[in-house]
Amino acid sequence: MVGLGLSIKKCEEKPSFRHLRMIKGNRSFELDNIKFEVFWDLSTAKYNSGPEPSDNFYVAIFADSELSLVLGDLEMNLKSAYPVAEFSLISRSEHFYGNAIYSTKAQFCERGNVHDILIKCSGDYEGNKRNSVLSVCFDKKEVIRVKRLHWNFRGNQTIFIDGLLVDMMWDVHDWFFTSSGCAVFMFRTRSGLDSRLWLEEKTLEHKGHDRVEFSLLISASKNPI
């Protein structure tokens, strides 16, 4: 993974994306008249099978000196030393390179389970002709399988996870047909009452409640960016 991508939502502000490319440090910036400060330490982080750190790390985000988000197990008693804002993690992005097997973890709602996700592009044989196949597994169970990926290089399917409809979109055109060799996979939840694919939705105003969604963006390239 090249960088850790985070998006946070505070009140009604639009999410902002920042990439933290050093293993330890801090950064401050201003967005919509709100001062954000980010502190992180991945220098002693431990990893399992995927690119996401599992132990010995922390990422802390302050908005106007109010603690808005803490990730990791090295929290340095931040939650007791600073006022804590209400927050929701609404999106995450990861980048891979160098192979066609990508594994990560994701939790699609606050009360849901943390799922192991495996995306694999491989080949099978039908009539002595090699065909690329895209398979997506949740917790070692295949939930999506796309054959003839060279022809079906863009598409979407909907799966059911933790009582939620989750739309998956893939675009592997550039991986097969351009020199950039990039592929994109996205997962995003939607309301069970809404039958439309989230890509088709227009911006709607919801009065009296917040519509909380989560999205996971995975990008992949053949070579390091």
Score class of each variant (00 low, 15 high):
105 K>Q: 12
154 R>K: 15
6 L>A: 06
45 A>T: 09
17 F>Q: 08
6 L>Q: 07
74 L>V: 12
192 G>K: 11
190 R>D: 00
15 P>Q: 05
33 N>S: 15
44 T>N: 15
11 C>N: 13
167 D>A: 04
82 Y>T: 04
157 Q>P: 07
225 I>H: 11
173 H>C: 09
70 V>G: 05
163 G>C: 03
167 D>I: 02
225 I>L: 04
201 E>N: 12
224 P>M: 06
107 Q>K: 15
73 D>Y: 02
158 T>K: 10
126 E>P: 00
182 C>R: 15
152 N>Y: 05
82 Y>M: 01
62 F>W: 09
96 F>W: 06
140 K>R: 14
109 C>G: 10
74 L>M: 09
34 I>N: 15
141 K>L: 04
164 L>N: 01
35 K>P: 02
97 Y>N: 14
99 N>W: 02
105 K>L: 00
100 A>R: 12
154 R>H: 10
59 V>E: 06
42 L>Q: 07
28 S>W: 09
174 D>T: 07
61 I>K: 03
194 D>T: 11
5 G>I: 13
56 N>G: 04
141 K>V: 06
162 D>P: 07
194 D>C: 12
138 F>Y: 10
161 I>E: 00
225 I>A: 05
112 G>K: 12
92 R>C: 06
206 H>G: 03
113 N>D: 09
110 E>I: 09
8 I>M: 14
115 H>D: 05
175 W>F: 09
31 L>R: 12
39 F>P: 07
13 E>K: 11
107 Q>I: 11
190 R>A: 00
115 H>F: 05
78 L>N: 03
30 E>I: 14
49 S>T: 10
11 C>F: 10
5 G>A: 06
179 S>W: 08
36 F>H: 13
35 K>F: 01
200 E>K: 13
160 F>T: 05
110 E>F: 04
85 A>F: 05
48 N>K: 11
172 V>K: 06
44 T>Q: 15
202 K>V: 03
164 L>K: 04
79 K>F: 00
179 S>D: 14
48 N>C: 10
58 Y>N: 14
103 S>K: 13
117 I>A: 01
200 E>R: 12
203 T>S: 10
169 M>D: 12
124 D>L: 11
13 E>R: 12
134 L>K: 09
179 S>I: 02
208 G>P: 02
31 L>H: 10
66 E>H: 14
37 E>Y: 02
55 D>A: 12
37 E>F: 11
148 R>H: 12
190 R>W: 04
35 K>E: 07
167 D>S: 14
94 E>M: 08
12 E>M: 11
33 N>L: 07
223 N>D: 01
95 H>A: 15
46 K>S: 14
96 F>S: 07
114 V>L: 15
195 S>W: 00
19 H>I: 06
57 F>I: 00
123 G>W: 03
104 T>F: 09
158 T>C: 10
54 S>R: 13
7 S>V: 01
210 D>G: 07
73 D>F: 09
109 C>Y: 03
202 K>C: 10
19 H>V: 02
40 W>D: 02
105 K>S: 09
35 K>V: 08
24 K>W: 00
157 Q>V: 02
25 G>R: 08
36 F>E: 00
7 S>N: 09
58 Y>A: 12
65 S>C: 05
78 L>T: 08
198 W>Q: 02
58 Y>H: 15
98 G>E: 04
123 G>L: 03
128 N>C: 11
199 L>N: 06
10 K>T: 08
140 K>N: 14
56 N>M: 10
11 C>M: 06
193 L>D: 08
4 L>M: 05
146 V>E: 13
